[in-house]
Every structure is written in C-alpha cells, then in structure tokens.
Amino acid sequence: MLLRLHQIDKFYPTGEGPLHVLNGIDLSLEAGKSLALTGESGSGKSTLLHLVAGLDSPDAGEIHLGGTNIVGLNDTALAALRRGTVGLVFQQFNLIPSLDVAANLAFQARLAGRPDPAWLKVLAKRLGLAQVLTRYPEQLSAGQQQRVAIGRTLAARPRLVLADEPTGNLDEATGDAVLDLMLSLVAETGAALLMVTHSNRLANRLNARVHLHAGRLV
C-alpha cells in the first residue's frame, strides 16, 4: 500500500473554539491507482490533501506514505518528502512567475535531483507546450498554465500525485482536456493519484471515490 491514513483528526482554532475539520479518517491508496475525494465546500477535502502532502500535520492519527509514518517528521524531512515522493497540482496553478515555461517545467525535477531532459521533452510535447517554452506564466492562458503545473509535477516522476481541484479554474472543455492528459500521464508514470474535486462527473473517471461530509468519510 502506497498511502494509508489511520484515524486522522484535525482541528482549526476559531473564535467559537476548535473546529473539528477531520474526524477519524481512515483511507488507503495503492500504487498506480487513482482515488477521487469529493465533498461540499468546507468538508475538509483540501485539508486532507495538505496533510498527505506533508504541508500540514494532523492533531491525531497516522499517515503512512511508502511505509513511513510521516506524522511527526521534522520540517527538513517533510520538505524532502515533498521534493522526492509527492507531486502537487493546485487549482490556482501556482507557477513561479519569474521563471519561463521551460524552467517551470524542469523546476521540481531538478529540485528533487532527478532532471531528465528527454522526459521533459516528451512532457512538453504531450502537454502541447513545446511552442511556449520561452514564455512566462503571465503570457499563457489558464489552460496552458495548468498544463505547465501538471508537467512540472510529473517531470519529477513522483510516486504520489496530489491534485486539488486541478480543473476548477478552467472551463468544462478545457478542464476535460487537461484532465485527460493528466490521467493518461499519471498512468504512464505508474504514480498513484489522489484528486480533490467537486464534480461527480470528474470523480467517476477515477478508479475509486470517497466522499467527505463534515469531516467524516461517508
């Protein structure tokens, strides 16, 4: 099992006391499989994704990634995990505005110490970015920016891809095209995919789906 979550609890402090965002979550994902995480706004989907990515830590429970419990790891170890093991695709793209497309694509792979120019070339071609490699993010359309973000994640060949509403900022046609690309490339790299989405239509395209409601899996 690539990913296993056991009894995850997460609270957010609020003016009215702690808010129980995640409540006893158990979840697992095998390598090479894809899982959709759906739920209403505020159900805790993104929080769960962030915990898995090592961006935040739970208040209780265990998160086993590749056999290692990442809960309690220090900042440096978590950073190494994000560099080498997981890849993140955000709704807002979050490209680096000061770097051009080629540098953005290569960035995470180089950070992880796994630069592969041949794979990058393939990715750029498959993602339709070969003609815009010297452009800067602000010169791209939203669809192009999300394709760069997907390429950046996959360039490092992570074992687990975490996508948070990757098509949320795109129109339906563009979103579908981007998702098609992402799913096929993830499959080609053999990575597992955990995707947060509002859309049942998109969720149904993945191997499995779970639903979060008020911090619990239902």
Partner: peptide, 14 residues
Amino acid sequence: PQLAPVWAMGLTRR
C-alpha cells in the same frame, strides 16, 4: 503567493 509553491515543492521555511 510566490514563496508558498516553492515551499510546497520541497523547500523548508527556514
């Protein structure tokens, strides 16, 4: 917004 993605990609806050 410029630093958070780099942090998410594996750099520590320090």
